[in-house]
Structure formats: structure tokens, C-alpha cells
Computed example of a mutant assay.
Amino acid sequence: MIRLDDRLVCLRFETMKAVSALAAVRHLLDTGAVRRGDTLLDSSSGIYAYALALACHRYGMRCHIVGSTTVDRTLHTQLAVLGATLEQMEPCSDLKLDQKRRVERVHEILAEHPGYHWMRQYHDDVHYLGYRAIADRIREAVGGAAGLTLVGGVGSGASTGALARYLRGAGDPAHPPADVQLVGVQPYGSLTFGAEHVPDPEIIIAGIGSSIPFGNVAHELYDTLHWISFDAALAGSVDLLRRHAVFAGLSTGAGYLAARHERERAPERTVVFIAADTGHRYVDTVYARHREAAALADLAPREVRDQRQLALPWSRMHWNRAPAPAGRRRGAGRGCGGCVGGAARGGRAGSMTKRGNR
């Protein structure tokens, strides 16, 4: 955890989804859903592929990934060294089509290999489990604050949704209900919260948005939403490195932008934002364009009352823990057995608190 100022904290990961993948695989082994030597299968745009490969490497499993067209050479090499099988989609300028094709390919593989276990990172609540230890770490670091605001990319819902539930208590008698506001970050073009009608001319930020319904996004957990364009997220990423020496991915730039705004609106609250990965795979697409980055002082969100008012480069809306929009109802998780309210297995998160450069 990197403290950028007295009330702004960066929760930094090298590979965030390793937390969820390790706990999920361990849970599946413990419950007998899979055995060592089995093949675990899923689709990924990058971070989860590496996380699942690491988990399979640790627990003696085989790993099969249907990868996005955005998987770069570095990740391709890492997966190969870890022994994972990668099927990468053909180049495609439309990431919505890329996501759809990946899911179709997963179903084809399952038909060919019914013994494979589909991890269903977008639909199974088992991926919430690993974040309990992270929530405990946050609680220790910022305990006693008047209120906590958690900011992060929505994506499959596992990271922000799980952390909010655990931090709010989630029926755990050891931790009474806490004042935790959850702020979700979405790219334009994502249908999860109804922004599919507003395209971003640059790119939909893979990993924090979706062109298909995700079954484990609990819409009713979110208080506020920010939709942030590629250009605005780029400015956030560059400023975070320049101002605080934190080198992180594009979704982190978007989260940092939203977190600064929430911090200014409620100076009495502590704001924690998630940095899901490092900035290495964004060197050419983001950091090499640092001279194009807008000054953050020139950026502010457009406050909207509903999705019809959304507009680039940045919009903000109160969600007020409302249920999912029509057609995006949350599906039942599989293989977790009500895991979010139960005890997650595993050790504590071992990160070190320090103050970021200013």
C-alpha cells in the first residue's frame, strides 16, 4: 500500500488477479471439484491469464488460456515458460468482437475436452475468496478513518465487489458494519452499467469493462460510477508516474483520476484506489505518448443523472447501490457455496506501506 497523501492510498499489485486465481484453485482442490493434474481453462485479456498460469504452476495443474488479441509478446513468453497453453485470437480492431470470439472458443474446447474445468472468472463467485486477506490488510492500514472510499475498475466484479463486501463486514461478526463507499470505474462502450452506446474512438480498456454480461458483478454494491476514456486514463497514468513514481497500467490511471476527484469531494474520507498491474505492457501505447497527456487540472467529470447523458472524456453518476439494469441481472455463482460471507483460506497480504513521491 502506497500512501500518496494523508487521505489517498494506492493499493498496488504486480498482478492483482493472482490473489483471486490462487484462492479459487485452492478452494476447488480442497472441495474436490478438481484434482492435481487436471486442466483449468479460461479466457483472458492478459492479467488473469498470467494469474491462472501462476496458480496452476503452484498447484500442479495444467493451464489452457484463450487469449485476447491484446496479449503481448512478453506475456506470451511468460505463459510459455510457466507451461501454459495459449490460444490467441487473430488480430481484431474490435475488442467487443474479440471478447465474443474468445467465449465461443471456450465452449468449443469444452465440447472437445469435457474433462477440462472452466474457471468462469466472469461468472463464478469463487473468485471473490482471495480478497478477504487484502481487505484485512486495508483495514489495518486505514483503520480508524472517518470513512473509507474504495475506487477500482469493475471488470468481472471480483476485486472491487469482494473488497467492498469484506470491508463492509459481509456478515462477519469479527468485523462490524463499516462506512465503505464503493466507486466503480468503467470504460465507455462497456455494457455492464449501460454505456455500450457510447464508443471510445481510441479503445475500450480491456479488463475493466465488458461487451457481454458478467455474472459475478453485484451492481447493488456500487455507490458511484466513473466512465473514463482512454485519453483521460492516459493522463492519469502519466501523472501518477510523474507525480508519485508509481508505474502502473492504464486502468490504474483511470482509477487514480477518479480517486483524486472523490478525495476532493469528501476530504474527511480516506480514498483507496486499486492498481491492478504494472505499466510494462503499456510502454508503447500509453507512456510513449506522455507528451500528449492532458494536465489533470484541466480534466473534470461531467455529472450525469442517467446513461443517456454520458459523454467523453469523463462522466460521473450516482448509482446508489441500485440493482443491475434490465438484461444484466446477476447470475448465480458456481462452486463457491456462499463463499463471500465465509472464511477465505490463505495467508495475509504482505505489502509494505510507504509514502509516494510528490
Rank of each mutant, 00 (worst) to 15 (best):
R36A: 15
A146F: 01
Q99M: 09
G83D: 11
R329P: 02
G338N: 14
G341T: 13
L310T: 11
R7P: 08
S190F: 07
T252H: 02
A324C: 11
H261A: 06
V151A: 11
L150H: 03
A23K: 08
L167V: 05
G255H: 03
T285F: 03
A276L: 04
D72E: 15
R305W: 05
W227C: 06
A275F: 00
V180N: 07
D72R: 14
L11F: 03
V106W: 03
V25K: 14
M352P: 01
Q99H: 10
A145Y: 00
R101L: 12
S156C: 09
T224W: 13
A21T: 10
K100I: 04
E108W: 06
R316M: 09
A164Q: 06
A178V: 00
Y166P: 05
G194R: 09
S93G: 06
Y166L: 05
A55S: 11
D98Y: 04
L182E: 04
A195Y: 02
R243A: 13
G147P: 00
A326L: 14
Y48T: 12
Y131A: 04
R265T: 14
C63L: 09
L29D: 09
V271S: 04
Q121Y: 09
R3G: 07
C336Y: 10
H123Y: 05
A275K: 03
L234Y: 02
D94T: 12
R263V: 08
V246E: 09
W118K: 06
V142R: 02
D94C: 10
I228S: 13
G209R: 14
R281N: 04
G189S: 13
E220V: 13
E112M: 08
Y222F: 07
S159R: 08
P91F: 05
V142T: 06
S251N: 12
D6M: 14
E220W: 12
A146Y: 00
I134V: 15
M89L: 10
H57I: 08
G155C: 02
T252E: 00
P176R: 09
I138F: 00
E90Q: 07
G342C: 05
